[in-house]
Design a binder for these strands. Structure first.
Lengths: 353, 353
DNA sequence: ATCCTCCGTGTAATCGATTCCACGAGGAGG
DNA sequence: CCTCCTCGTGGAATCGATTACACGGAGGAT
């Protein structure tokens, strides 16, 4: 493969001049510029990014370590991150942690070894050794979706509390009183927050959230299935299951179906994180939608700000409730007006399935 | 950040010795080994992969350019590729082409600039300039899922022909006679092959595949919707729509639902590429499943073989039909025996939804 | 005792770029 | 006419590793 020296020889100039042309440095004659361009063309020369990175100490690459690629929420996040990064002149290397702290550490270490310019992480837990080391190491970093308390790094995430309140209002309006939640891992912020938001919203209606109605999941489909089976075996099973992510909702659907029960007639289901497939499940699933694209964009911008020396601040965007049919038909189904929700929620949208 | 020189100083040895310890070179004394290890530990030293790559001319990184990350099929492929690569000591950089040849070229170029050791591609079309250049450039390369005819590169893919025959047998057995297909882009091998396999299978039953029943899609949901709307407006609409990928099936479902029609009563639906959500759609979708994990693994092994100087050969794995309810209930639903398919297909499996 | 081998180690070249510094030519100003 | 800038250019150092080669000392064979 041709190197800069070959180009210099072909153009009859020094490597310094070639480099200057390649980098758009001002003090180069028009003649030299032309000859270099011609030589580059003739040889099909492409600069070696590895050598360039070594010298300049920047790779123009961002690392993105996400908890689970197979989760459509993170897939979409990854996509939007890559898009925004590309627009800003950066590449992205994705690491899939599969909700495993050890795998997460592996990727963080590999990424740091490659001297990426900045790191975007949605941590699997409250701080694996590698993660904490990275935060201290001085590499620009931004948390997205989840974060680690006590670590001084900007966080880009969405606040689901108001959407959860809307959801509970919706459920209460439909007459449901025994509500259960399949939570995420207690070691993640989103795992804890969603339970807390749910409990708080329930409290506003004087409804309890007994321990038996809090199932410990891990954001994977299988745990949703297992927890839901547990719920269904209780003497007094819940009337509603709220899954803290879409994969666990899938598992819950599996478990309910396996029992021969029907949604929403026998039991209602709602999920955190909306995805296109929820429109076509049987029945369409009521879900809380995060502004994923905006989250990805904001995270990249915050990170690039840090990389390029600007402050780079935290961002919190609101999530919103999307009502479908998995919790029961609202009492009134008119095209507008009374939605059958007994307290006026702010940003509820009803999607026609 | 500490470099190898710092480690050498700390250990009171030369950089050469440190490097030898780090790379497990045999001729190093036990004493030196211990001192280096201690120094590395003390300084928290991590070798700079960029510098190492420059010198050794290998990055231990594979590039994976896929047509569309948002398609669960490719997401799963990416995941399995990364897993196998990691097991073999390689990292993976994923590029998402979004079915756009220009974006695909962008990623291929970037990847080549970074001097990845090998490239795994599922090409968006029959050869964009960048793609062909890469194939000629001498970088080890393997095609996965799709390939470019006439380019001498190993191909790892699955053969859906027998599964498509099973599908047509199943449909024919249910009494369907007017069958339509939403094809992929004509510029892709999978786009063409699936139509051909369908046409051939239809031919075996003396059924035609009129042009009006071949809709031009692009593997994205929106095109599935558009094409299906076209089918539904025909004077004689098809009784079955077979989508050549899962995203277009999603779009087809949208279009059918929007018309107020029901699956399978009013129209049947089947798809290429099975995904977990198909179990829970309304109704569960009959699909052709590819052995994605195996495909990913085989592709990586073939590529690494080429990289490390071994031959590296093409692999073709069979796909299989998974019957669900979107084409109608089979006549006999006994636990075993007659499945209602009028010709005995070989590897049909029925999944309990 | 001498010579030859290993063995462990260090010095320095090298990978392919970027960039500091020096240098010569040419123009402007005194 | 001399001096001083500016501009375009080239030489060479540099980034952080790997590795060919040289070298000194220990040990074995003769």
């Amino acid at each position: 493969m041709a190197g800069i020296k070959d180009v210099a020889a072909e153009a009859g100039l020094s490597v310094a001049t070639v480099s200057r042309v390649l980098n758009g440095h001002p003090s180069v004659s028009e003649d030299a510029r032309r000859r270099v361009t011609a030589a580059v063309e003739a040889l099909g020369y492409r600069p070696n990014a590895v050598a360039r990175s070594l010298r300049t100490d920047q790779t123009r690459t961002l690392g993105l370590v996400i908890s689970d690629v197979m989760n459509p929420y993170f897939t979409e996040l990854a996509r939007s991150v890559e898009e925004e990064a590309r627009a800003l002149g950066y590449s992205v290397i994705i690491g899939n942690a599969d909700e495993r702290p050890d795998l997460q550490d592996h990727h963080v270490t590999t990424l740091l070894d490659r001297r990426i310019d900045g790191l975007l992480v949605s941590p699997t837990d409250d701080g694996s050794p590698g993660m904490l080391a990275a935060a201290r190491a001085g590499t620009p970093m931004v948390f997205v979706d989840r974060w680690i308390p006590g670590v001084d790094v900007p966080v880009v995430r969405s606040d689901g509390r108001s959407a959860v309140r809307d959801l509970v209002a919706h459920l209460h309006g439909l007459g449901h009183r025994r509500l259960a939640i399949i939570s995420g891992p207690a070691a993640t912020t989103t795992g804890r927050e969603r339970v807390e938001a749910f409990r708080a919203a329930l409290g506003a209606y004087g409804l309890p959230l007994p321990d038996a109605y809090i199932g410990q999941g891990d954001f994977q489909a299988e745990s949703g299935r297992r927890v839901t089976e547990g719920f269904l075996e209780l003497d007094e099973p819940p009337q509603v299951v709220f899954a803290a992510d879409n994969l666990m909702a899938l598992g819950a659907l599996d478990a309910i179906r396996a029992r021969g029960l029907r949604v929403p007639d026998d039991i209602a289901l709602a999920a955190f994180d909306d995805i296109p497939w929820f429109v076509h499940t049987d029945p369409p699933v009521t879900a809380i939608a995060q502004p994923v694209r905006e989250l990805g964009r904001a995270a990249v911008r915050a990170l690039v700000d840090r990389i390029e020396g600007r402050p780079g601040s935290s961002v919190t965007l609101p999530a919103r409730l999307v009502v479908r049919r998995s919790c029961g038909e609202p009492a009134a189904v008119g095209p507008s007006g009374g939605r059958g929700i007994d307290r006026p929620p702010s940003p509820v949208r009803r999607s026609t399935p």
